[in-house]
């Protein structure tokens, strides 16, 4: 069974035509991989489907805009994977 990170990385590689081996857990989806907000909607859709969750993108954006969080917390891929694992766990609770 592939890890959450591997699933995300595969989705990004396929959705945005980014070489898979250039995507690491430390990659920042926006700053390092150059993914824009529209492409991220495609990624969010694929993640929502793959994990059966609903990424709270609006909440995350609001927190970043309000200075309560940094983009690193949600868009560095290892952190995104951790957030997804939390959402999956919360769904099963």
């Amino acid at each position: 069974m592939s890890s959450t990170f591997d699933t995300i990385a595969n989705i990004i590689a396929e959705t945005c035509d980014i070489p898979r081996d250039s995507i690491t857990p430390e990659s920042h989806a926006i700053n390092d991989l150059g993914i824009d907000s529209l492409d991220f909607l495609d990624i969010a859709f694929a993640i929502d489907k793959a994990f059966g969750i609903k990424l709270p993108l609006e909440q995350w954006t609001q927190e970043v805009n309000d200075g309560k969080a940094t983009t690193d917390q949600y868009f560095v891929l290892k952190n995104l994977a951790a957030r997804i694992d939390e959402l999956v766990a919360a769904k099963g609770a």
Binding site: L41, A44, F45, K54, L55, L57, E58
Partner: peptide, 9 residues
């Protein structure tokens, strides 16, 4: 098809 956060398909 999908009702996401801030978007719909």
């Amino acid at each position: 098809e999908h009702d996401g956060s801030g978007y719909a398909i």
